[in-house]
Each structure stands twice: as C-alpha cells, then as structure tokens.
Design a protein around this nucleic acid. Structure first.
Lengths: 207, 207
DNA sequence: TGTCGAGTTGGCCCAAGGGCCAACAGCGGG
DNA sequence: CCCGCTGTTGGCCCTTGGGCCAACTCGACA
C-alpha cells in the first residue's frame, strides 16, 4: 500500500529534522512535501490533495497551534499531527481540543510517527468521503430554481401541496409541478429519500 | 447560579487534595462528592445525576484513564476532567482522545479548574438533553407492536403500501392500518416527520 | 424582435393514502 | 369459557399525489 494518493506535509524550521523525517517517510513509501516556514506552507497549500500535516509546535512567526487554526479557518480539514521538542501539557490539551490527530515529542519513534500518520490517513479519507458526498449533494441542490427550493423546504417540512400553495399564493397544480421537478432533479423517488437528503444538506424546512 | 443540579465527583487518593478542592468548589456553590478510591467511586456512581468527574491520573488500582474507560463502558457519558501531579504528554493525548474535557496539572489554578468545570457542565447538559430526547423517543417507539415497527421501517425506506404488503405477504389494506397506527402512536402527522424521527432513533429502513 | 427558461395554470385521469365501520382468527389471562 | 390485544381483511369513499399535454406570461438575451 505504498502508492496511495496521500501526501505528508512536513513543516519544521529545523532542516535536519525535515531531512530525517522525509527520509524515513519516503522509505515507507509516503509522498512528502516539506516546508521550513508556516507561511510558506500556508501559501502553497492545496487542500484538495489528500494528506496530513506534521507541524512543529515552536516555529518562528506562526506557531504550530496558530497554523492549525489557520488551516481550519481556510476551510481545510487536513488532519494535523504535532511534533515538538519542548511540549507542555496545556499546549497538548489545546492542540488535541482543536482536533489534532496526535501530539508527539522529539525524538519521535518511527512506529509512533507511522501510526499517527496511518490514523491521519483514515481521518482524511473519511473526511474526504463525507465532503465528496456533501458537495455532490450541493451540486444537485444548485440545479434547483429558487422557487423549487422554496417548495422543497415546505415538502420536507411535511406540508400538503394545498397548504404550500396557499402559503406561496399559487395554485396547487403549480406546486405539484415544482415538486415533481425537485424529485427529478435530485434523483429521489420518495419523500422519505428527499427528507433524508435535506437533513444531510442541513435544510430545516423553515417555519 | 450556585444552585443548579450539578455535582462535581472528586476522585483522588490524596485526602489533602480532596479537602482543598472540595473547599474551593463548595465556596463557589458547587455540590461536591469526593472519593478516595476509583472503585469506591465506580460502585457508588449514579450516572443519572448531572455532574462531572475530576479524576487524579495516578491512583492505586484503577488509574484515571482506566476509570474514564470504565465510566464510558458503563454507558455513562459523564464529562471527565483530569488532575495530575506528574502528567506526561502521551497520557494527556490519550485522555483527550478518550474525550476528557481538560487535563490539568497540580497545583491547579482556581480559574483553570473552574473554567474546566464550567465547560464540563455545558457538555453534560448538552449530552443530557440529547439523551432525554432519545429516551422519550424510544419510549414512544416501544409502544409499537412488532408488526408496526416492521411496517414503519418500510415506510421510512420510502416504499409504497403496495410494495410493503407484497414483502410482508399481507394485503395493502393491512399495511394502511398499521401505518396509521404508527403515525398515531408516534404523534407525527407527516411521513417527513416520521422519517426524521426514525433517523434520530437510528432506524435504517432495512434492505 | 424572436427565442428561451422559469414560473404559472388548466384539464384529464389514475394511483396512492387514509378515515370509518365491520369482521374474523389466535393467544394469553382472568 | 369469555375478554382483550394483535394482526388481519373487506368495503366504501374522499383526499392527495402526480404523470401527460397544452398554454400563457415575463424577463433576459441574442
């Protein structure tokens, strides 16, 4: 399993650490991209590539935790593993709370690092799968016209065509048409499926 | 806000710590129950009481992490705060991964402890609210006869009465009756509501 | 100005949902 | 042995949902 599409992004200001870890990971068949500064990493970072980040905690400029925040803020759910020489417990707590996969101390054992990476890979692939599902859903949802979306919300809320019609001030027949189009565009055949789909997309069904 | 129903369960083998923290928390209006051994705590523990646990990590017999596991295994989702004299990073990581609210080191500052407790209280009340919703749901679900539950699963899966009838080997009319009873017993008026309710209860809708 | 998509509505007709009343068969308890 | 619950089914009838075809309006765009 040395050739899956998974890249380890290594960020550490100590080049010797970078080199050593890169060698270790490459030997295990991992792709590695290393950066000596947080900003360099952030500005060259492509969240669409599957992978995880291994961050040093103490770095000039942005420290590891701040970098983790920045990653999260930029919409990336890239799994983060911390690696630190002088770690303390409060920092560990903050990192883990912020969703870090692991918090390792230098010198790190190969097995610890590899296990953390394996864990990160699992997380990443799960997050990507969820993300993919959600985005394909939103794509289909985007095909709906505003009116259709409006009707859909009412349908999902469990209202009858007649009620929807009176709320929207149109004829019941019109609602039927919109409703049919919604089902067709979203590729569902039952209201039950429509409801589940709406739930996943976070559609409340408005008052 | 000194009189909400929230108890801090304190577990530490050092009586002087127990005493000091108890005094601090009582002064702040918290209820406190203290235990000098993990087993004492576990066997006297009532998960139905709102509260959080503050555990020492290093204790004779069951250590803090094991106690946290035991709590989780016993079905309690009691928030846990760790308090330790000699904590290390790997232990911190494991504790946080296992869902600890915080991992504090002795001597602990009053504000850190109180903030962690406040956080634990928020978690506990959220968990309790979710739990309460789920249990009332299960209560209503328990009112259904086996046949009704079966029909419900098919309805939630989006099948037509006719299809359900053929699968269950009965007449369509019978399904209508069961279906009506399900809706009545669960107090929902639309299939949409039924689906949402089933989702919350984790009913897949079977193949 | 003509075309196109979105939104609208009508008629026709059939399928599906569902309320009401009645009835029957097992099965466990009193 | 009768009662009540569960599960079953039938008939009757009305409401809802929804497919097919046709038509109209309006704003946008070429």
């Amino acid at each position: 399993m040395t050739d899956r599409e998974f890249t380890v992004f290594l960020v550490d200001d100590d080049e010797s650490v970078l080199k050593a870890i890169t060698r270790l990971l490459r030997a295990r068949g991992h792709r590695v991209q290393s950066f000596t500064s947080p900003s360099e990493f952030l500005s060259n970072h492509d969240p669409s590539i599957a992978g995880c980040a291994i961050l040093d905690v103490a770095m000039p400029g942005l420290d590891g935790l701040a970098l983790q925040q920045a990653l999260g803020a930029s919409g990336s759910c890239r799994p983060v593993i911390f690696l630190t020489g002088r770690g303390d417990i409060p920092t560990t707590v903050r990192a883990m709370r912020a969703g870090a996969v692991d918090f390792l101390t230098k010198p790190v054992s190969d097995t610890d690092l590899l296990m953390a990476i394996a864990q990160a890979e699992r997380r990443d692939s799960e997050a990507r799968a969820a993300q993919a599902g959600l985005s394909s859903l939103n794509t289909r949802l985007a095909l709906l016209t505003p009116r259709e979306r409006e009707v859909m919300q009412h349908v999902v809320a469990g209202r009858l065509n007649k009620q929807i019609a009176s709320v929207l001030g149109t004829a019941e027949k019109t609602i039927k048409v919109h409703r049919g189009r919604v089902m067709a565009k979203l590729g569902v055949r039952s209201v039950a499926d429509l409801v589940r789909l709406a739930e996943r997309a976070g559609i409340s069904g408005e008052a």
